[in-house]
Nucleic acid binder design. Structure first.
Lengths: 294, 294
DNA sequence: TAGTAAAATAATATGATATTATTAAATATA
DNA sequence: TATATTTAATAATATCATATTATTTTACTA
């Protein structure tokens, strides 16, 4: 018993004759007769009575026909669904992003991609870079967007976009009115910054030590929004990605400071497992990221 | 895509490896690899990622697995049901019977057969012999039990049992006390009898005219039970099959009369279409009828 | 650095499933 | 009543799907 024989069987039932079914299936009549015979021998039942020249289903024939139709419907549905997946009419792509990207970039990326490809499910996880890397290695996400460095050699890292961190202060802070600020001045300030392990903090500390600028940290907050509010309230100054403060800079609630001769630069990266098969959907998402149309 | 490839696919998913699946399916690893490859090419999707040496389902792979499992369950169920039918653990046999047989014999036949073969569905129809013959020709029943003659040459007729009709009267009727009754005496009686077309009436009239016995009919009832009640009430005498009056004779409410030199004999027949396939169940039912174990 | 295990690849063998040709049986048609 | 016509069964053979064997590649392990 296989799908082919069941298809022949249902067609014979529909046509009421072997030769009719043969014509419909573009095969010869003996092939049809043989398929039915094989079914009957294999299942040890008679499927048809031939009364008055017509083929009439026996009881086991009727029962088998019911099953054959149900099986056929399922198979058709499976094929149609797979076709939809192949054509990207449906699908799933699991994204992971580190905190800053996940908070300030990913929502719009997913929204615009979802607009282009309806019925695509895009579950996403937001965590620090190390956790996102681990998820990739465990195959619990397909693509990652991270700000920090990747250690596994099994992961392919592609530059996504450049990011810059800026020192920020309140509009009421003395710095807000000044044009040129020497980096050494920061030693007098109350510095608010993200926790250890944060990519933002890592870039800040590395850059500061590279330039031998002394500083001391006053407040540690594991939440960029909380930091922004604290800075707005003039509790201190901080350093954050430019993508996190677009609104506040525009409205003037926060002020971006350029230290003379010091820039906090880093790259956002796209990461995926080297063994990952690049489905059409996968490639489309990468293309969407690089197009920047969002 | 066919059952074989889906089975290979689900086994690979269960085992987590191609060679493991090969072992489980008693085939070689290349055969498994090839089946998976063919599935992927045919459906135009990748089913597995090979990350960290392990085979991991892709999204389309997960979707296909769902369908494959559901299809597999249905196929198994179909095969198991057909096996049940082949072994007569389940089945269906459609019986037709003419009125007298259907009323007085069939219930016990079906009850005892059903006791021997549980889960066998035995729908039955009761009508006159001509209607039962027509049902056989239309294949709306499988086996008929009739008292009248069959006209179609496409129907096989096998004698089932001999039947005899008897003149009956009430225990209060003058005949009840007499031993010998000449058939001519009936011309004085109020005769109650079944309608035209009834097998019982046909045998009665044929036999009477064969012996040139004059008679006149007073009451016509299309229901043997009604006739028996009327005779019990001494409204008249009638003629009925011996199988219809066992209880009443035993209890003495009715009395069987033997006309000297006249017997109303007929045969009950088993009928079925000459082209009908004789399934095991069919043969078992015929055997049950002939065994008389009920 | 060799050894082991899993999977891919290629060549070939086997088995399932076609086709062609023919026969048989039943109907329809002249 | 004889003669096409239709339908299905049967047998011989051809073709295609799917198996095996042998080999290579790759990654992991001792």
């Amino acid at each position: 018993m296989n799908f082919r024989k069941l298809k022949v069987f249902t067609t014979v039932c529909d046509c009421g004759s072997m030769s009719g079914a043969a014509k419909k299936l573009y095969m010869t009549q003996p092939a049809v007769s043989q398929a039915i015979l094989e079914l009957e021998e294999e299942l040890d039942v008679h499927l048809f009575d031939r009364i008055n020249k017509k083929l009439l289903l026996t009881y086991p024939g009727e029962v088998l026909l019911e099953y054959a139709r149900r099986i056929h419907v399922l198979v058709e549905e499976a094929q149609s669904t797979m076709k939809d997946i192949a054509n990207m009419n449906t699908g799933k792509l699991r994204i992971g992003a580190s905190t800053t990207i996940g908070t300030y970039l990913l929502p719009e990326i997913i929204r615009s991609f979802g607009q282009k490809y309806k019925n695509i499910d895009i579950p996403f996880a937001i965590d620090n870079t190390g956790a996102i890397e681990k998820m990739l290695l465990e195959n619990s996400i397909d693509i990652g967007l991270v700000e920090g460095p990747i250690h596994s050699k099994d992961i392919i890292v592609k530059p996504y976009m450049d990011d810059e961190l800026f020192i920020i202060c309140s509009k009421n802070h003395p710095w807000a009115a000044r044009k040129r600020i020497g980096p050494g001045t920061i030693s007098d300030q109350n510095i608010i910054i993200r926790e250890q392990g944060s990519g933002t903090r890592e870039v800040f500390e590395n850059t500061m030590s590279k330039h031998n600028i002394p500083y001391s940290i006053k407040h540690v907050l594991n939440n960029t929004e909380a930091i922004k509010k604290a800075v707005e309230a003039n509790i201190g100054v901080s350093v954050v990605s430019e993508i996190a403060i677009k609104e506040e800079i525009k409205s003037g609630r926060l002020v971006k400071i350029n230290f003379e001769g010091v820039r906090f630069l880093r790259k956002f990266n796209i990461i995926y497992h080297k063994d990952k098969y690049h489905s059409k959907l996968f490639e489309e998402f990468l293309g969407h990221l690089c197009s920047g149309n969002f």
